[in-house]
Amino acid sequence: MLYLWLKALHIVSIVCWFAGLFYLPRLFVYHAMSEDQPSRERFKVMERKLYRGIMLPSMIATLVFGIWMIVINPGLFSTGGWLHAKLTLVLLLIGYHHACGAQLKRFARDDNTRGHVFYRWFNEIPVVFLLAIVILVVVKPF
């Protein structure tokens, strides 16, 4: 029963984390397009609150519940290579999360050198991660 609760909390955490991973780069698009100081300051506040208040706690919760599930059911590692591939993608996703944090710091310092087109493409990266991870977990192709 504990495992099912952990799985439910893991999924909720993932949904919250991905909501932030989808929205923060979209804010970067708008921030990069903004031309007046009040708009830029507003985006700085929104980005900071999203990253620190939603994304970071959601990422930590996702990792805690995921690791907890593996600890109480270590047999998951012998169910195939899908879990190893998923965990590799999760590590890369954590890297993307931190890249978002680095961009946030650049915007906070008014040191952004990239245009909105870059952030439009940057915004698509978590979609690829989500598709790959969900397919690995549901289909378990190997």
Score class of each variant (00 low, 15 high):
Met1Tyr: 13
Tyr3Thr: 02
Leu4Ile: 15
Leu6Ser: 01
Ala8Tyr: 14
Ala8Met: 10
His10Asn: 02
Val12Asn: 01
Ser13Glu: 00
Ile14Tyr: 07
Ile14Asn: 02
Val15Phe: 09
Cys16Arg: 00
Cys16Lys: 01
Phe18Gly: 02
Phe18Asp: 00
Ala19Pro: 05
Gly20Gln: 03
Gly20Phe: 07
Leu21Phe: 02
Phe22Gly: 02
Tyr23Thr: 04
Leu24Tyr: 03
Pro25Val: 01
Arg26Val: 09
Arg26Asn: 02
Arg26Lys: 14
Phe28Leu: 00
Phe28Asp: 00
Val29Met: 15
Tyr30Ile: 03
Ala32Gln: 09
Ala32Phe: 06
Met33Leu: 14
Met33Val: 08
Ser34Ala: 15
Asp36Pro: 10
Asp36Gly: 07
Asp36Tyr: 12
Arg40Thr: 12
Arg40Gly: 14
Arg40Phe: 12
Glu41Gln: 14
Arg42Glu: 13
Phe43Ser: 04
Lys44Leu: 14
Val45Asn: 04
Glu47Asn: 11
Arg48His: 14
Arg48Ser: 13
Lys49Met: 14
Lys49Asn: 15
Lys49Glu: 15
Arg52Ala: 11
Arg52Glu: 12
Gly53Asp: 05
Gly53Cys: 04
Met55Lys: 04
Met55Ala: 03
Met55Leu: 06
Leu56Asp: 00
Pro57Cys: 01
Pro57Trp: 00
Ala61Ser: 08
Thr62Phe: 11
Leu63Pro: 00
Val64Glu: 01
Val64Asp: 01
Gly66Lys: 03
Ile67Asn: 01
Ile67Phe: 10
Trp68Gln: 06
Val71Leu: 07
Ile72Gly: 02
Ile72Val: 14
Leu76Lys: 13
Phe77Ala: 06
Ser78Phe: 11
Ser78Leu: 14
Thr79Asp: 12
Thr79Met: 13
Thr79Phe: 10
Thr79Asn: 11
Thr79Ala: 11
Gly80Gln: 05
Gly80Tyr: 08
Gly80Phe: 10
Gly81Met: 12
Trp82Lys: 08
Leu83Trp: 04
Leu87Trp: 11
Leu87Gln: 13
Leu89Thr: 10
Leu89Trp: 04
Leu89Tyr: 10
Val90Arg: 11
Val90Gln: 04
Val90Met: 07
Leu91Pro: 08
Leu91Met: 14
Leu92Arg: 09
Gly95Phe: 05
His97Met: 09
His98Ala: 13
His98Lys: 11
Ala99Cys: 09
Cys100Gly: 10
Gly101Trp: 03
Gly101Gln: 05
Ala102Pro: 06
Gln103Ser: 12
Lys105His: 11
Lys105Gly: 05
Ala108Ile: 08
Ala108Glu: 12
Ala108Gly: 09
Ala108Leu: 08
Arg109Met: 09
Asp110Arg: 08
Asp111Met: 08
Asp111Ser: 15
Asn112Phe: 08
Thr113Tyr: 08
Thr113Asn: 11
Arg114Glu: 10
Arg114Pro: 09
Arg114His: 13
Arg114Ser: 12
Arg114Met: 12
Gly115Ala: 06
Tyr119Cys: 00
Tyr119Lys: 02
Arg120Ser: 11
Arg120Val: 14
Phe122Glu: 03
Phe122His: 07
Pro126Lys: 03
Pro126His: 07
Val128Asn: 01
Leu131Arg: 06
Leu131Pro: 09
Ala132Tyr: 02
Leu136Met: 01
Leu136Trp: 04
Leu136Gln: 00
Leu136Thr: 04
Val138Asp: 03
Val138Ala: 09
Pro141Gln: 10
Pro141Val: 10
Phe142Thr: 13
